[in-house]
Design a protein around this nucleic acid. Structure first.
Lengths: 193, 193, 193, 193
DNA sequence: TATGAATGAGCTTTCATTCAT
DNA sequence: AATGAATGAAAGCTCATTCAT
């Protein structure tokens, strides 16, 4: 992948993030790179392809990281902590890309979802596996609804895309720790034992 | 508000939900109501206005409900339970409208956000208030980051827009109870006391 | 069909004729009608549809006319004369339309040919029928290659699209008579009997 | 002319034939040769030049052949037979090139026609000369319209471009004989004398 | 109350061509 | 002899919106 292509993908990520995929124009993107609109098409087949390119790599990496965590032999508690950690870190590292993913996937043609091999479903399954293991080993509450809980975790993590700003008061790792702590032990104050 | 206008808003909600605001066309919406594109403009000033109309009422109602909960004299635990309850119920009752709100507001001009009186921020504050009260009374953990926790709750609730289907396995009230339970006491299995 | 639509089709015929279908632009056509390009699309679905509309009617009429001739009970000689007559008259009456047909059909998507129900093949068959009848009745030479002769007739008639100008020295009916005469009796001078 | 240049011209002929001049792209042609688009321009000045190169040689050769026939001292009947023979043979030998010529010349800028020294007109004149000679010597019917007849002959010959396929049922020489026979003596069955 | 007709602005994409290397 | 990179110009088409009726 040439340097130009990387520039284009980065610019596209930023502009998709800012305006949304539909509202972003190829002219915008080209201008951000400092090239002509036509030149964009020398590097990229279409606007939709560009969306795919923006999203592909961080998505793949996140999947593989959580998959590795899932397969490791660790207590569920640690897997959950680490999983939330890498998820939020992905936002921290690739904010525009992840944001575009979370924000746009829904409104975009099926074709893209297919090319990402139905990532959202597969990723959700990974989390369900982690939770199921935890229930099986007795570490987690037996009455958990696995699916609902997985979606709860994904919800609280993905929602970052609405408010997270790199360099803000809350950095991703601090946040991950707090989320994991609350998720595992609840908001309720524990009686001083 | 005439019956026609209500029809138009309902149709717009459905189509914004399905295709997203940008991709939805005024033609689509008119066709769904069974009128001409031009007729739309007899009832509604612009497409953006339509988005506002779709979103305004359920948003206002939700705000008022949570505000009432916040001001009631109840334990934080109950406020959180009830707050999650009304939030998810709002999705249940007005799925397309809430979804449009959660999904689209972000990409739309500032003007619209102003007309909603910066709802997202105000709504977040409400939840922060509830949490702060709980910490003050000692009911909730003293080390909570109020903002992060509020955002965590909003995240897990709003994420419903990605997967919730009325009449599916999980109804909104069951889900609300589970979310509240996990949020308050955590995933971890408690020792049989 | 509104007056505007007719204007558009006429303008399209003229411009397709002049520049060819590919080189003609929808901007050209709109300008010729005196409307905006966008207005074109209020009346016509696409450029390709426009080509179809230009070509459809004269083509259908020609087919029906020759079909009627074929089915009449007349000597082959007369059928041939009349067939050439209506064929050349079609050019005379609808020059741009027929020309567009003869010129463009070949380079244009299969879809169009399908919509015209494979006119060229069917039309050729009609002529083959006429010839076959003539051979059967003994009026025409027994050694004729029916297909080759049909194509010869179509060739000499269709070639008009390359040079015919209404109001030129040769009008279509004169031409038709001469072509029929030569076709039936040859170029060779007959001995004064 | 280098071997590469010949390859390019042949490829261009094939692609112009298949898609038409306008729809053919320089990329298509380059790809067919196995070179880059830019490399094309090392060998050929422009796409239009390429059209000229495709067409020039077979056209020139045909002209010279018919010119020689015209100037020979032969009966008109034989000249016509031979003329049709070489014309159809030109299609047989250089199908894509001749087809491109017959099909495309019309839509292309005047400049190109000039470079071919107005071939169509000159070629038509050649045939008119042949016919005029035949009338003068009394071999052909005195009432012939020379121009119309020349155009009739060109029409039936050129129309081959629409249906001829090398190796099909009708080979060019058989066809030429039949066309000449019909042209000279007509379709009408002659009384057994 | 409703709409047929029209449009300005803008979109994605294509393409012949150029040029430094 | 060949090409990777770039582009100006233009194409077909869409859409929110207007307005006379």
């Amino acid at each position: 992948m040439s340097k130009r292509e990387q520039e284009i993908i980065a610019a596209a990520a930023a502009i998709f993030k800012e305006k949304g995929y539909q509202a972003a124009t190829t002219r915008d993107i080209a201008a951000a790179v400092g090239i002509q609109q036509a030149t964009l098409y020398y590097y990229v087949k279409s606007k939709e392809e560009l969306l795919y390119l923006v999203v592909r790599e961080p998505i793949d990496r996140l999947y593989m990281q959580v998959e590795a965590i899932m397969q490791a032999s660790l207590p569920a508690r640690v897997k959950i902590e680490q999983g939330i950690g890498v998820h939020l870190a992905a936002f921290d590292d690739n904010y525009p890309h992840m944001l575009v993913f979370v924000q746009e996937l829904h409104n975009v043609v099926q074709a893209l979802r297919d090319r990402l091999q139905n990532f959202p479903r597969r990723y959700q399954s990974l989390w369900e596996d982690i939770l199921r293991q935890g229930v099986t080993t007795g570490e987690l509450r037996r009455d958990l609804d696995i699916t609902a809980t997985a979606l709860m975790i994904l919800g609280m993590c993905n929602w970052m895309f609405r408010w997270y700003r790199k360099g803000g008061r809350l950095d991703a790792q601090t946040l991950a720790k707090q989320y994991a702590e609350t998720l595992l032990h609840g908001l309720t104050a524990r009686p001083a034992s």
